[in-house]
Lab assay of single mutants.
Amino acid sequence: QVNQQQLQQLMDMGFTREHAMEALLNTSTMEQATEYLLTHP
């Protein structure tokens, strides 16, 4: 289960819902999730 607010923040940054969910499931903080998305295009 992912934090919906964090998911929305990542989608607002331009990431897809699927990619943002993957990042949130594989990390524990927003900072890590953002870094994950930038390093796993």
Score class of each variant (00 low, 15 high):
residue 5 Q to M: 06
residue 4 Q to V: 04
residue 39 T to G: 14
residue 41 P to D: 00
residue 20 A to Y: 00
residue 13 M to I: 05
residue 18 E to V: 09
residue 5 Q to D: 15
residue 14 G to C: 03
residue 27 T to I: 01
residue 1 Q to H: 00
residue 40 H to Q: 15
residue 23 A to L: 00
residue 13 M to Y: 01
residue 15 F to Q: 13
residue 12 D to W: 01
residue 6 Q to R: 05
residue 36 Y to A: 11
residue 11 M to D: 01
residue 24 L to F: 09
residue 1 Q to Y: 01
residue 33 A to G: 03
residue 34 T to V: 03
residue 34 T to M: 03
residue 27 T to G: 05
residue 38 L to S: 15
residue 26 N to F: 07
residue 28 S to D: 07
residue 9 Q to A: 10
residue 35 E to M: 07
residue 4 Q to G: 04
residue 19 H to V: 14
residue 32 Q to W: 01
residue 17 R to T: 09
residue 22 E to V: 09
residue 29 T to G: 09
residue 25 L to G: 13
residue 3 N to E: 03
residue 14 G to R: 04
residue 40 H to E: 14
residue 28 S to V: 05
residue 14 G to F: 00
residue 12 D to C: 02
residue 26 N to W: 02
residue 15 F to E: 13
residue 13 M to W: 03
residue 21 M to I: 05
residue 12 D to V: 08
residue 38 L to V: 13
residue 30 M to H: 12
residue 35 E to T: 10
residue 23 A to V: 00
residue 26 N to C: 13
residue 26 N to L: 03
residue 14 G to A: 02
residue 18 E to I: 03
residue 9 Q to N: 10
residue 9 Q to R: 06
residue 16 T to Y: 06
residue 29 T to V: 03
residue 25 L to F: 07
residue 26 N to R: 08
residue 21 M to C: 07
residue 8 Q to G: 09
residue 25 L to H: 13
residue 15 F to C: 12
residue 10 L to K: 01
residue 27 T to F: 09
residue 40 H to S: 13
residue 15 F to Y: 14
residue 37 L to I: 07
residue 36 Y to L: 09
residue 23 A to E: 02
residue 28 S to W: 01
residue 11 M to A: 11
residue 7 L to K: 03
residue 11 M to S: 07
residue 14 G to I: 00
residue 20 A to D: 00
residue 30 M to I: 09
residue 20 A to V: 05
residue 2 V to I: 11
residue 21 M to A: 14
residue 34 T to H: 15
residue 34 T to G: 12
residue 37 L to C: 14
residue 36 Y to W: 13
residue 22 E to I: 08
residue 10 L to N: 01
residue 29 T to N: 06
residue 36 Y to I: 05
residue 5 Q to T: 13
residue 16 T to F: 04
residue 36 Y to K: 13
residue 23 A to P: 00
residue 31 E to M: 04
residue 2 V to L: 07
residue 17 R to G: 09
residue 34 T to Q: 15
residue 22 E to P: 02
residue 8 Q to D: 07
residue 22 E to F: 05
residue 9 Q to V: 04
residue 16 T to S: 12
residue 26 N to A: 10
residue 37 L to F: 06
residue 33 A to M: 00
residue 6 Q to H: 07
residue 31 E to N: 09
residue 2 V to H: 07
residue 40 H to C: 10
residue 20 A to F: 00
residue 2 V to F: 07
residue 20 A to G: 10
residue 17 R to V: 04
residue 6 Q to E: 08
residue 28 S to L: 05
residue 1 Q to D: 00
residue 35 E to P: 01
residue 27 T to A: 11
residue 9 Q to H: 08
residue 38 L to N: 15
residue 39 T to A: 13
residue 29 T to K: 14
residue 5 Q to V: 11
residue 3 N to C: 13
residue 35 E to I: 02
residue 16 T to D: 06
residue 6 Q to N: 13
residue 34 T to A: 06
residue 10 L to G: 01
residue 20 A to N: 00
residue 41 P to F: 15
residue 28 S to C: 07
residue 27 T to V: 06
residue 30 M to N: 06
residue 19 H to D: 12
residue 30 M to K: 10
residue 20 A to H: 00
residue 1 Q to V: 03
residue 30 M to A: 12
residue 29 T to I: 02
residue 28 S to F: 03
residue 24 L to S: 09
residue 31 E to D: 12
residue 32 Q to D: 08
residue 33 A to C: 04
residue 19 H to K: 14
residue 27 T to N: 15
residue 18 E to F: 02
residue 18 E to Q: 12
residue 6 Q to D: 15
residue 7 L to I: 14
residue 26 N to I: 03
residue 20 A to L: 00
residue 4 Q to M: 08
residue 13 M to N: 12
residue 14 G to L: 00
residue 38 L to Q: 15
residue 35 E to R: 11
residue 22 E to T: 09
residue 31 E to L: 05
residue 25 L to D: 13
residue 29 T to R: 04
residue 13 M to A: 12
residue 8 Q to Y: 07
residue 23 A to K: 04
residue 13 M to Q: 15
residue 11 M to W: 02
residue 14 G to K: 07
residue 8 Q to P: 02
residue 37 L to Y: 05
residue 15 F to M: 05
residue 29 T to Y: 01
residue 11 M to L: 07
residue 12 D to H: 10
residue 23 A to F: 00
residue 14 G to P: 00
residue 15 F to K: 05
residue 14 G to Y: 00
residue 38 L to T: 15
residue 20 A to K: 01
residue 37 L to S: 10
residue 2 V to D: 12
residue 39 T to L: 06
residue 30 M to G: 08
residue 31 E to Q: 11
residue 38 L to F: 11
residue 8 Q to I: 04
residue 9 Q to G: 08
residue 4 Q to Y: 02
residue 16 T to N: 12
residue 9 Q to C: 00
residue 33 A to V: 01
residue 41 P to T: 11
residue 21 M to N: 07
residue 17 R to L: 02
residue 17 R to A: 07
residue 41 P to Y: 15
residue 20 A to I: 02
residue 7 L to N: 00
residue 2 V to T: 04
residue 4 Q to A: 07
residue 22 E to C: 04
residue 24 L to H: 09
residue 8 Q to H: 10
residue 1 Q to R: 09
residue 21 M to L: 11
residue 28 S to K: 15
residue 12 D to P: 00
residue 5 Q to E: 13
residue 20 A to P: 00
residue 39 T to Q: 13
residue 8 Q to W: 05
residue 18 E to R: 06
residue 24 L to Q: 06
residue 25 L to Q: 15
residue 14 G to S: 08
residue 5 Q to H: 09
residue 22 E to D: 11
residue 14 G to W: 00
residue 3 N to A: 01
residue 19 H to S: 14
residue 16 T to R: 08
residue 14 G to Q: 06
residue 15 F to S: 07
residue 27 T to C: 09
residue 6 Q to A: 13
residue 33 A to Q: 02
residue 38 L to H: 15
residue 26 N to P: 02
residue 31 E to H: 05
residue 26 N to Q: 11
residue 37 L to D: 06
residue 16 T to K: 13
residue 14 G to D: 12
residue 24 L to V: 10
residue 1 Q to M: 11
residue 1 Q to E: 11
residue 24 L to E: 03
residue 36 Y to P: 01
residue 11 M to Q: 11
residue 3 N to K: 05
residue 23 A to M: 00
residue 20 A to W: 00
residue 11 M to T: 10
residue 13 M to D: 03
residue 30 M to V: 12
residue 18 E to T: 03
residue 33 A to P: 03
residue 24 L to A: 07
residue 12 D to T: 10
residue 18 E to H: 02
residue 24 L to P: 02
residue 19 H to I: 09
residue 13 M to T: 14
residue 18 E to K: 09
residue 33 A to D: 02
residue 22 E to N: 09
residue 39 T to V: 05
residue 32 Q to F: 03
residue 36 Y to T: 08
residue 18 E to C: 06
residue 22 E to H: 12
residue 3 N to V: 00
residue 17 R to P: 02
residue 5 Q to A: 10
residue 12 D to M: 07
residue 30 M to R: 08
residue 3 N to S: 05
residue 6 Q to F: 06
residue 23 A to G: 06
residue 37 L to G: 10
residue 5 Q to K: 13
residue 14 G to H: 05
residue 21 M to R: 14
residue 22 E to W: 10
residue 18 E to P: 08
residue 35 E to Y: 08
residue 25 L to T: 15
residue 4 Q to T: 09
residue 2 V to A: 03
residue 40 H to K: 15
residue 10 L to P: 01
residue 28 S to A: 11
residue 8 Q to V: 05
residue 19 H to A: 14
residue 31 E to G: 09
residue 38 L to W: 08
residue 28 S to H: 14
residue 38 L to G: 14
residue 36 Y to H: 12
residue 7 L to F: 03
residue 13 M to F: 02
residue 11 M to I: 12
residue 17 R to F: 02
residue 30 M to Y: 11
residue 4 Q to N: 11
residue 35 E to N: 14
residue 9 Q to Y: 08
residue 17 R to N: 14
residue 32 Q to E: 06
residue 6 Q to C: 01
residue 11 M to V: 12
residue 33 A to E: 02
residue 34 T to R: 15
residue 1 Q to N: 02
residue 40 H to A: 14
residue 9 Q to S: 10
residue 1 Q to I: 03
residue 40 H to P: 14
residue 19 H to R: 11
residue 5 Q to S: 12
residue 26 N to M: 07
residue 30 M to D: 07
residue 23 A to N: 01
residue 11 M to G: 04
residue 36 Y to Q: 13
residue 6 Q to Y: 14
residue 21 M to E: 15
residue 12 D to R: 11
residue 27 T to R: 07
residue 15 F to G: 10
residue 29 T to A: 05
residue 17 R to W: 02
residue 27 T to S: 10
residue 36 Y to G: 07
residue 5 Q to R: 06
residue 9 Q to E: 13
residue 12 D to L: 08
residue 11 M to Y: 02
residue 27 T to H: 11
residue 25 L to W: 04
residue 38 L to D: 14
residue 32 Q to K: 14
residue 35 E to K: 14
residue 39 T to W: 04
residue 32 Q to L: 07
residue 2 V to Y: 03
residue 39 T to H: 11
residue 23 A to W: 00
residue 7 L to H: 12
residue 29 T to L: 01
residue 19 H to Q: 13
residue 30 M to P: 08
residue 35 E to V: 03
residue 40 H to F: 09
residue 9 Q to W: 00
residue 32 Q to T: 08
residue 4 Q to F: 05
residue 32 Q to C: 05
residue 27 T to W: 02
residue 31 E to S: 09
residue 12 D to I: 06
residue 30 M to E: 09
residue 33 A to L: 01
residue 14 G to M: 01
residue 39 T to D: 08
residue 23 A to Q: 04
residue 33 A to W: 00
residue 4 Q to H: 08
residue 25 L to P: 04
residue 16 T to M: 11
residue 35 E to Q: 13
residue 26 N to D: 07
residue 18 E to L: 06
residue 1 Q to P: 00
residue 32 Q to N: 11
residue 40 H to Y: 09
residue 38 L to K: 15
residue 23 A to T: 01
residue 21 M to K: 14
residue 9 Q to L: 03
residue 27 T to Q: 04
residue 25 L to N: 15
residue 22 E to L: 04
residue 29 T to H: 06
residue 9 Q to D: 12
residue 12 D to Y: 06
residue 32 Q to I: 02
residue 27 T to D: 03
residue 25 L to A: 11
residue 39 T to P: 13
residue 39 T to Y: 03
residue 16 T to W: 01
residue 5 Q to C: 10
residue 21 M to F: 04
